[in-house]
């Protein structure tokens, strides 16, 4: 149907029909993409290549759930050289059932891996606070690994006024 219109002389009617067909095609294609997007994993890695490869290496084929972790960072920071973060995983710390480690990742820093915190049942709480560098405005990701290979994720978007990594 679209092909039959392409040989038309560039008249107003022909053009508008072309455009109309194009819009219809684009719309149906758009719908198709939306459906495909909905079927893809919800928490796909988005960010720098280093972030993607770091994230994929940690997660593998698993699909982390977005719960249990509370990641606190100011939504807007002036100085990317010193960004305060606090994270807490709401899970008991008992022998055989505890938070083994939490990875803190930046999605747009030159090096995605910021820190990994390894806990033990003697930690009592899987909670840490510290200061990180953010090169620019980006999302920060915390990935918690519980015993039994259960994965949880938390994300926080941080707007950075002056980047802290490239200087």
């Amino acid at each position: 149907m679209l092909m039959t219109k392409t040989n038309d002389k560039p008249g107003s009617v022909g053009r508008s029909l072309d455009r109309r067909d194009f819009m219809i095609t684009a719309a149906s294609l758009g719908v198709g993409l939306t459906v495909a997007g909905a079927l893809a994993p919800v928490l796909e890695a988005r960010g720098s290549d280093d972030f993607k490869s770091t994230f994929d290496a940690l997660v593998g084929n698993a699909s982390p759930t977005e719960e249990k972790i509370k990641l606190e960072i100011d939504a807007y920071v002036e100085n990317g050289n010193m960004v305060f973060y606090r994270l807490n995983v709401d899970h008991p710390m008992q022998e055989g059932d505890y938070v083994k480690q939490v990875h803190l990742l930046s999605t747009e820093n030159p090096f995605a891996h910021v820190a990994t915190f390894q806990f033990t049942p003697q930690s009592g709480r899987a909670a840490v606070a510290g200061r990180m560098r953010l090169a620019k405005t980006q999302e920060v990701v915390a990935l918690a690994e519980l015993s039994g290979d259960r994965l949880y994720i938390a994300k926080r978007f941080v707007k950075v006024a002056i980047g802290g990594c490239e200087t």
């Binding site: 891996h113 910021v114 820190a115 510290g130 560098r133 802290g164």
Partner: peptide
Amino acid sequence: RAKFGTGVA
């Protein structure tokens, strides 16, 4: 234990 990368201030 904590392992740090260059992203720690």
